[in-house]
Amino acid sequence: MSIIVNHVDFVYSEGTNTSQHALKDVNLQIKDGEFLGIIGHTGSGKSTLIQHLNGLLKPASGEIYYNGRDINDKDFSRKELRSKVGLVFQYPEYQLFETTIFEDVCFGPKNQGLAPKDAGLRAFEALRNVKLPKELYYQSPFELSGGQKRRVAIAGVLAMKPEVLILDEPTAGLDPQGRDEILEELARLHREQNMTIILVSHSMEDVAKYVDRLIVMDDGRVAYDGTPREVFKHYEELKKMGLSAPQVTYLMHDLKKRGFDVDEDATTVAEARDTILAYLGKSR
C-alpha cells in the first residue's frame, strides 16, 4: 500500500509562450505510515507535486499510483481518491464558511454521502483530534484566533478520514506556540493512528524535528531524498537552492572544523546538546 510517482512531468500553460516546466521526471515512493517533509524554494514545484497526489493536477506524462492503481485511469474514482488523500491548502482558514465550527467540519463527510448523524460523529472525532475546546464547537469559526481557525480547517479534512494527510505550510503566519501545537498534533496522528503525513514547510528547524524522511525539490526535480540528517549534510548545496539548514547544523560543522569531535550532522537541539556534552565530558 503506497503512493508511487512514476516519471511525472508537468507543464503549466503548455504550448503557450508563458509555459512553465514545473515537474521534471519526478520519481517517488511514499509508504504507508511515513511522516514525509517536502522543502524547496518558492516555485520549486512543491505545491505542484502535492496537487498531483490527490488528482487536482494531471501529469503531462508519467503516472501516479495509489495502492497499485493509476489514479488518472478513467475507472478510478476521483471522489474516492480525494477522501483517502486529504489536502490542507495554504492559509486554509480562508476556506471556512459555515455559521458554526461544527457545521463547517461536517461539510466534508456530508459531501462524501454520509448521513447527518454519522457526519456529526466524524466531526466530533476530528475536532477532538485537533484539540479544540468543546465549548467552541457551536461558535462561529470567524471569531477564533489564527491558530484555532487553522485547526478547525485541518479538522474539516480529518473528518473525511483520509489515509494520507497532505499539508501545505500549515504553520505559516502562526506564533511559535500555535506552530508547535499543530506540529505536535500531526506527530500524534502519525504515531497513534499510523496516518501518512506529508508536510510542506519553509521551516528547516520544524522538518528536522518532526519528519522521518525529507524530500528537497529544486527546479521541478527531486534534488535530495533521505532522512533530515542525510539531507542537511548538503547544507552548502541547499543554500544554492534557496534553502538553509537548521541553525544548529551550522554550529556543529563549525565546531568540527575547530577540532571538536562531535556529530556534525546533528539537526535538532537535543542531538546537538547530547553530542556537545559527550565531547566536553570526555575531553575534561
Binding site: V269, R273, I276
Partner: peptide
C-alpha cells in the same frame, strides 16, 4: 506563547 532562536535554546540547555 513565544520562543527563542534554536541556538539560544541549545545554549540554554547546555
Amino acid at each position: 506563547h513565544l520562543d527563542v532562536p534554536q541556538v539560544t535554546l541549545l545554549a540554554h540547555e547546555l
